[in-house]
């Protein structure tokens, strides 16, 4: 855990050193990065540029590209299926960020205290986020089964009627959020726990002398101090929730109908089901812009909260 204390707050802003040594050494370090630069140009930068190029073309697999300018984009914004997928993504993302942040912060407060078997229990708690998403998605699918699923049986024990889970349009997204919360609350816990580990003791001691209760200490000391870490967790969760794919794809493939079709699922279907390469590339470009803008916005919010705190 040695590195957890200081690092999370730095992770959203690259921690390449503010000049500790004069920069005149720089050229001799180029060669170290050269192989990585070449590979990254090939598998990352080339795809980005090629996607941008394709987004301006009408291109179906099998045929050739035909330049159509911005037509793919104007078509997208008239495509109700695309617009609905944006709506689903927004709905999913908001809850898949807020709930893990709340639960993860609460879990971090618990795991910050000393208690027997803490290490073991923390490892168990962290397991969902390490497990192969496809594997856990398959188990959830079996648990959601309307007739034979264990969840409806457990509900019946406490007198709640059977739920349709992922089999009805109005419950499918909340159900997928349940899986996402189960899956990613541990990540938030780890980040906030790293923040708690670095807290000073003095404010708590003087607050105790002043007779503050534990809620006051949390609200006025702990929360402001770990807020930068929570902001980092919000940035990471937002990006991850926007990109969520594996569990949604395995459990519902966007269904029933298109009720859980998020942007990423829509993109997959356009590209590899309908083979509309140009159209799908335009979706990627929009996706890219959304992610970059949101991360800049959140980073800005983080900086601002930091300035206010100082």
């Amino acid at each position: 855990m040695t590195n957890t204390t200081a690092m999370p707050a730095d992770l959203a802003t690259p921690k390449v050193l503010p000049a500790r040594h004069s920069a005149d050494f720089t050229p001799r370090y180029w060669l170290f990065s050269l192989p990585a630069v070449l590979v990254i140009l090939g598998v990352i930068v080339f795809p980005w540029l090629f996607t941008l190029y394709m987004s301006g073309h009408d291109w179906k697999i099998g045929g050739g590209p035909e330049f159509v300018g911005l037509q793919n984009f104007s078509e997208l914004f008239r495509d109700t299926r695309f617009l609905e997928s944006m709506g689903h993504t927004a709905y999913f993302t908001v809850l898949a960020v807020v709930l893990p942040i709340v639960f993860g912060t609460a879990a971090a407060l618990v795991f910050h205290r000393e208690f027997p078997f803490r290490g073991l229990l923390r490892t168990i708690f962290v397991m969902p986020m390490m497990a192969t998403p496809v594997a856990v998605a398959l188990v959830w699918t079996m648990m959601f089964h309307p007739q034979l699923g264990v969840l409806n049986y457990l509900l019946s024990l406490v007198g709640v009627g059977p739920q349709p889970w992922v089999y009805a349009p109005h419950t499918v997204i909340p159900t997928l959020i349940l899986v996402e919360v189960w899956h990613w609350t541990p990540l938030v816990m780890l980040i906030v726990l790293g923040g708690l580990a670095g807290l000073p003791k003095e404010p708590y001691e003087s607050a105790l002398i002043d007779g503050a209760n534990s809620w006051h200490m949390f609200r006025h000391i702990t929360l402001p101090l770990v807020w930068p870490f929570i902001m980092v967790a919000i940035v990471i969760r937002t990006i991850d929730a926007l990109k969520a794919f594996d569990t949604i794809f395995v459990i519902t493939q966007g269904g029933p109908g298109t009720a859980s079709e998020t942007l990423n699922i829509f993109l997959y279907l356009q590209a590899f089901q309908f083979y509309k390469i140009g159209y799908a590339s335009a979706v990627v470009v929009i996706f890219f812009v959304i992610i970059i803008m949101l991360s800049l916005l959140l980073l800005y919010a983080r900086q601002k909260s930091k300035w206010n705190a100082e």
């Binding site: 690259p14 990065s33 795809p47 990006i239 990423n264 590209a271 991360s295």
Partner: peptide
């Protein structure tokens, strides 16, 4: 190389690569 050569821009490129959805490389 990045840590010692202070290649900030390259580091940001790496970060953006981590944020981009995997599907976007795939097409």
């Amino acid at each position: 190389g990045i840590a010692r050569g202070k290649a900030t821009k390259f580091a940001i490129l790496i970060l953006v690569a981590r944020m981009t959805p995997a599907l976007s490389y795939l097409i």
